[in-house]
């Protein structure tokens, strides 16, 4: 039933699109009919071209994402432990946080060329903030009452960090990773639109130059679907790590 509800709006749009194209209200040069888009999608899939672009983009996202996590996470932990570092870092981050990663692309192209390095740089920039800020926030917002429990049982600082602070920060860390993954996917497609020779973004910009709106639509739908699937898989994988946050069910009487 829920699946049906989810599909209602896409189905209505598809139906309007189909009817509009058939009746002739919609200009076919601006919005090609669904049948042509479907045909293009099948051609691109069977030639392997679409999958190749998807694979290139996905590889960039995962490489960039892991590179970011490798340094954003330890940095957040360090700032979380050494509170004095916060005064140095906070204003800088507040400033950088307002700059969209896309705005830095021209500079990255000057520095790194249009190869993989500039794409990685964009992804790292896009992923850094959600991962860093959510990890830091998770560490700083640890319940003082739970830390007192550690004190009462004679825990050392190290034990308190590993046994109380880290597990309590875990849900927030995972939210940060999930947001970061979404941001990096969007930022990457943006980067590929500006400068690339492969990837989904490149496929779209190339189609614009060839006046092929059908390919553009296939590209846009692919971006949405891939983003959705990445997020869904990530959510599924991580909800096993934090089972206590699942929906509450009360076990009978006391």
């Amino acid at each position: 039933m829920k699946v049906l509800k989810c599909l209602t709006i896409p189905f209505v749009i598809l139906a309007l699109w189909f009817i509009g194209s058939t009746v002739g209200i919609i200009n076919q040069y601006i919005i090609p009919p669904p049948s042509r888009v479907l045909h293009t999608a099948i051609t691109l899939l069977s030639s392997g071209l679409l999958l190749e672009h998807i694979a290139t983009s996905l590889f960039r996202v995962f490489a960039g994402f892991f590179a970011t996590v490798l340094f954003a996470f330890p940095l957040a932990v360090l700032v979380g432990i050494k509170r004095k570092l916060q005064d140095f870092i906070e204003p800088v981050l507040d400033f950088l946080g307002h700059i969209p990663p896309i705005a830095c692309i021209p500079m990255f192209i000057l520095w790194f060329g249009i190869g993989e390095a500039s794409k990685l740089a964009v992804i790292i920039l896009a992923t850094f903030f959600p991962v860093f800020l959510n990890t830091l926030n998770g560490i700083l917002s640890c319940d003082k009452q739970l830390l007192e429990v550690g004190d009462v049982f004679g825990f050392k600082d190290r034990d308190k960090f590993l046994r109380i602070i880290m597990p309590s920060a875990l849900p927030s860390i995972i939210v940060g990773l999930r947001l970061g993954l979404g941001y990096s996917w969007r930022a990457l497609v943006g980067a590929e639109l500006i400068a690339a020779s492969s990837g989904i973004g490149y496929m779209i910009i190339e189609a614009e130059q060839l006046s092929r709106p059908d390919i553009i639509i296939v590209g846009i739908i692919t971006i949405g679907l891939c983003g959705y699937l990445i997020d869904y898989c990530f959510f599924r994988l991580t909800s096993c790590i934090i089972p206590w946050t699942r929906k509450r069910s009360v076990y009978g009487r006391s």
Binding site: Q145, L146, E148, I164, S168, L170, I242, W244
Partner: peptide, 12 residues
């Protein structure tokens, strides 16, 4: 050791 007014259990 102390038993607090709230249970203060580790939710995880």
């Amino acid at each position: 050791s102390i038993v607090f007014q709230e249970p203060r259990l580790m939710p995880w």
